[in-house]
């Protein structure tokens, strides 16, 4: 299988068709079966297809599949068996959703922020999420949940940091 393109999605290696111009969104949904990544506009304007590529939040409708060769991708399915993840816990705690169509994209955008361990203010978090649209008007709860997730992951880190000091 020399020369075959591959990428890693949620920890699993997948082969990619090197000739295809297929947007990553459709590769994920229809080829790999990871359908939490949602089609909202296909124009890069709503954020509901946001995934994490090598640590950065990207819209998968605007990403060509062959361009993710060698890269690591995460979709909201990573949370399926991680209900204790600070983001999942805090989104449930604040009931931060209504129809939920936008939520996987928002969770991915938030996870990339959280993973970078930057200390962001509420406004900075909000600005980072401006590319993600929510029509049900749950924004405030979503921001509450992300702030809480920051707090939870800092608490989790604190004892380890002490012991290594």
């Amino acid at each position: 299988m020399q020369g075959e393109l591959r990428c890693t999605i949620n920890g699993v290696v997948h082969a990619i068709d090197s000739f295809s111009s297929e947007p990553l969104l459709f590769f994920l949904r229809d080829k790999i079966g990871l359908r939490s990544t949602r089609y909202g506009c296909g124009q890069g304007t709503c954020g509901s297809c946001t995934v994490i590529i090598d640590g950065e939040a990207k819209m998968s409708c605007e990403t060509i599949t062959k361009d993710v060769s060698g890269k690591t991708i995460e979709t909201a399915e990573v949370f399926e068996n991680q209900h204790e993840h600070p983001l999942v816990k805090s989104f449930i705690e604040f009931q931060a959703g209504q129809c939920g169509y936008c939520l996987p994209g928002i969770l991915m955008a938030s996870k990339s922020l959280l993973d970078k361990k930057q200390n962001l203010s509420r406004l900075e978090i909000a600005q980072a999420l401006d590319a993600n649209l929510c029509r049900c008007g749950v924004h405030s709860r979503i921001l509450d949940a992300i702030e809480k997730a920051y707090q939870l992951s800092n608490e989790k880190k604190a004892p380890n940091e002490k012991s290594s000091a």
């Binding site: 359908r35 939490s36 909201a76 399915e77 949370f79 399926e80 209900h83 999942v88 989104f91 449930i92 009931q95 959703g97 129809c99 939920g100 169509y101 939520l103 996987p104 969770l107």
Partner: peptide
């Protein structure tokens, strides 16, 4: 809600 967040 959980399924809407992480599922299909």
């Amino acid at each position: 809600l959980l399924e809407r967040m992480t599922g299909a």
